[in-house]
C-alpha cells in the first residue's frame, strides 16, 4: 500500500518533466505562466494569448496580435497550396477514370 502511494506521488511529481522533452542544445522560449517550452518566440506569443488570455500585460497582448497576423498570412498561403493539391487530385482522378 505504501509502495504504491509513493509511486503515484513520484509519478505526479515528475509529470511536468515527462510532458516536455527539450533537446539539450536547443533554444526554448518558456511560458512564464505554465512553464511550457516552445521552439519559436511567435508560438510562445500565440500560446500566451490562447491559454492565459486574462493574465497578459500590454506588451504580451501586442506580441500575440503580431503573431496572430503573421499566422493568418501563412495560413492563406497554405490554403492556396491545399486547394492546388485538391484540384490536382480531382483532375488527376478524372483523367485516370476517363482513360481506364
Amino acid at each position: 500500500m505504501t509502495d504504491t502511494a509513493t509511486q503515484s506521488a513520484a509519478a505526479t511529481g515528475t509529470a511536468i518533466d515527462e510532458t516536455y522533452d527539450v533537446p539539450a542544445d536547443a533554444t526554448a522560449y518558456t511560458c512564464s505562466y505554465c512553464g511550457r517550452p516552445f521552439a519559436r518566440e511567435s508560438w510562445l506569443a500565440l500560446h500566451r494569448g490562447l491559454a492565459h488570455p486574462s493574465e497578459l500585460d500590454d506588451e504580451e497582448v501586442e506580441a500575440f496580435r503580431a503573431a496572430h497576423d503573421e499566422e493568418e498570412a501563412s495560413l492563406s498561403a497554405f490554403r492556396l497550396q491545399a486547394l492546388g493539391a485538391l484540384v490536382l487530385i480531382y483532375f488527376g482522378f478524372l483523367m485516370v477514370y476517363a482513360l481506364v
Binding site: D21, V22, F38, A39
Partner: peptide, 9 residues
C-alpha cells in the same frame, strides 16, 4: 511540428 512536447504526450 517542431514541438517540445514529449513523444508520449
Amino acid at each position: 511540428s517542431d514541438t517540445y512536447l514529449a513523444p508520449a504526450v
